[in-house]
């Protein structure tokens, strides 16, 4: 069964469908969430509560002319949106949705996810540069400095989880946390009293918000300063791909957080574990992403980088030392 071609095809179709549906309807969720927070109604016209709005948007984006302005670097301009989308979809191959649902059980899946995430960074950089637009280039530079700064504390906190679970396999990490919420890495009081893991979780979550370029860390597309940042020159489906890539990155970030810290598919009280718990967890996390975006104002780029280099990195390093000591002692 492992090597059957049907299994591979089924997972391929399933992952594409999951990615597509999420990329489309998370946009709707975001608009509804924003509307709720700002005491508006949001999209209401197409379908019940505007549920068909993503389809209409998609049709509009697809039928629009693909405009390549003069003075852009043609090849890179066209490649960048695709590069933003591919790594996010590919990442889903190694995510364990439940004990039996997961396309590939890979030994180094955590590492693979971060390796793919670095390609997404290149997409923004190339998109910004290829546009040949001042604002887009500034946006690309900002986004790279931000991503580099936040990748360090993120990887360091991941190391704490990897040390506790003794594996870089997402499935093994999730299996290690089965049996109720007190086994989850965020609260982890069994075998080792890891009292500082909630700090790890906090740092990791902040970093994943920053890595996906979401407000209050959306310096790359700060519309009041940079028009639309690296997306300024993009229209139609080029823009659409960037947006879908952003939402898929959020989904991957939420899946990673849920697997590393919140027990994966494990039920909070040790029963009825299954894929539904995983989905509930990731959608709560995604809601938090939206909630944060529409609640907090954008910060300055300097303060943003200071937060990472002066606060998050020292804290994550200290946390790493404490966790290592706790592993040794208990």
């Amino acid at each position: 069964m492992e090597t059957s071609i049907w299994r591979a095809l089924l997972y391929l179709v399933g992952i594409m469908a999951f990615a597509g549906v999420n990329a489309a309807w998370l946009g709707w969720c975001e608009r509804k969430g924003a509307a709720r927070i700002q005491r508006r109604t949001g999209p209401m016209e197409a379908g019940y509560q505007g549920l068909l709005q993503p389809l209409c948007d998609g049709a509009k984006l697809l039928s629009k002319q693909l405009l390549v302005p003069q003075g852009v670097d043609g090849i890179l301009f066209r490649v960048a949106p695709v590069l933003a989308m591919i790594p996010a979809i590919t990442s889903m191959v190694v995510i364990p949705f439940s004990e039996n649902v997961g396309a590939r059980n890979m030994e180094l899946s955590v590492l693979l996810l971060f390796a793919l995430a670095s390609i997404g960074m290149i997409a923004i950089l190339l998109g910004g540069w290829a546009s040949g637009n001042k604002y887009a280039i500034i946006s690309g530079a900002r986004s790279v400095s931000q991503n580099l700064a936040y990748e360090i504390p993120m990887l360091v906190t991941v190391i704490t989880v990897v040390m506790i679970s003794g594996s870089m396999n997402l499935r093994d990490i999730a299996l290690d946390q089965q049996g109720g919420f007190w086994h989850w890495n965020i609260f982890r009081l069994e075998n080792g009293h890891f009292v500082t893991m909630w700090i790890s979780f906090l740092i990791f979550f902040i970093c994943s918000v920053a890595e996906t370029n979401r407000a209050p860390f959306d310096m790359a597309e700060a519309e009041s300063e940079l028009v639309a940042g690296f997306m300024t020159e993009y229209g139609s489906m080029g823009f659409g791909l960037f947006m879908m890539g952003e939402y898929l990155n959020i989904v991957v970030g939420a899946c990673l957080t849920a697997t590393l810290f919140l027990g994966g598919w494990d039920g909070p009280f040790g029963m009825t574990s299954g894929i539904w718990w995983f989905l509930i967890k990731i959608y709560i996390l995604i809601f938090t992403f939206i909630w944060i975006r529409w609640t907090f104002p954008r910060v300055q780029i300097y303060r943003l980088l200071n937060l990472s280099w002066k606060i998050l990195i020292p804290f994550s390093m200290a946390n790493l030392l404490i966790t290592a000591a706790l592993i040794k002692v208990f």
Partner: peptide
């Protein structure tokens, strides 16, 4: 292979591009 992606694609070439843009 993963480290190659993470370090050379994710850090080295990005830093070079960054330097050029600056």
């Amino acid at each position: 292979a993963m480290m190659q992606m993470l370090i050379y694609v994710g850090a080295v070439s990005i830093l070079i591009a960054f330097g050029i843009m600056m």
